[in-house]
Design a protein around this nucleic acid. Structure first.
Length: 271
DNA sequence: CTATGATGGAAAC
DNA sequence: TTTCCCTCATAGC
């Protein structure tokens, strides 16, 4: 279940393994037979992530486009392939490695124009070292939309999902309902810095950890129960102040915050 | 066994 | 704003 960094990680690992390799592709579930047929037996030129999208360049201006949605994931391993289990949307294999794609929202053929349009509608990605926070802030600072909505809008900022939005707002003591226009520039820079730091780490590590060592009771390997500050912790005490973490809905998704560290906004004041 | 929900997004209303 | 799709683990009969 991926946010941007896990997708970036898949792209990097698969790019290393698949670039320059001929791949056999089929769709055991039958759901993407048409797409499998287009690329079966072709050679991968490269694999890249664009926000939460994956693009496999097969040359001749054609790409395999995959969006994992909320449930999508890859399972992989060395040849030979395991017996099929459950629903496999797409199966890719080289001489020595196999991949199973399950649960994806989108599996299609992209042409150059589709890719150009995709890139045009996706905002700057904190994972991209060339992306500048100011470009995003210029939009955020003139928006009345709640910051909790803006952070999830892929057209504004790419790769951020529900966990990062909750966690980065906690880290910066911002209530999710606070309008973008009330976020001061230095606060936004700190938000961006945190997003980048956490997302880069996650893209390497493959899992999301936002807690500082000082806020964890156990040392050494990070326990699953101590990875996050607020996400999925409704009813539990805040690791920072002990107040009970709250839960609500925003943008059709559950959102979590600490009522004491992230007080409800009262008035608007441009910084 | 069925119901539910989970790191997403687009299309339909 | 709601509905639908994607898959699968888990909770509850």
């Amino acid at each position: 279940m991926p946010e941007g960094p896990q997708v970036a990680r898949y792209a990097r690992l698969q790019n290393d393994r698949l670039s320059g390799r001929r791949v056999r592709i089929d769709s055991p579930s039958g759901r993407s037979d048409d797409v499998a047929e287009v690329f079966d037996g072709e050679t991968v030129i490269g694999v890249e992530a664009v926000g939460k999208h994956l693009l496999y360049d097969f040359g001749e201006r054609r790409y395999l486009h995959v969006h994992l949605g909320r449930f999508g994931r890859f399972v992989e391993g060395p040849m030979p392939e395991p017996e099929l289990r459950g629903i496999v949307r797409l199966r890719l294999r080289t001489n020595d490695q196999w991949y199973e794609l399950r649960g994806a929202t989108a599996v299609d053929v992209y042409e150059t124009d589709d890719l150009r349009r995709l890139k045009a509608r996706i905002g700057p990605n904190p994972l991209d070292p060339r992306a500048r926070p100011k470009a995003v802030y210029d939009f955020v600072a003139q928006s009345d939309a709640p910051i909790g909505m803006l952070l999830m809008d892929q057209a504004v900022i790419a790769g951020v999902g529900n966990i990062y939005r909750c966690e980065v707002l906690f880290l910066n003591r911002i209530h999710p309902k606070q309008p973008g226009s009330t976020i001061a520039a230095p606060v936004w820079r700190a938000v961006w810095r945190d997003l980048r730091r956490l997302m880069v780490h996650n893209a390497v590590d493959g899992r999301i950890v936002t807690t500082a060592p000082a806020d964890r009771a156990h040392h050494g390997a990070v326990r699953a129960s101590e990875r996050l500050y607020v996400y999925h912790r409704a009813g539990l005490p805040c690791r920072h102040c002990g107040a009970i973490i709250r839960e609500g809905m925003m943008g059709g998704r559950r959102i979590f915050w600490c009522p004491k560290d992230q007080p409800e906004p009262r008035r608007r004041a441009r910084a």
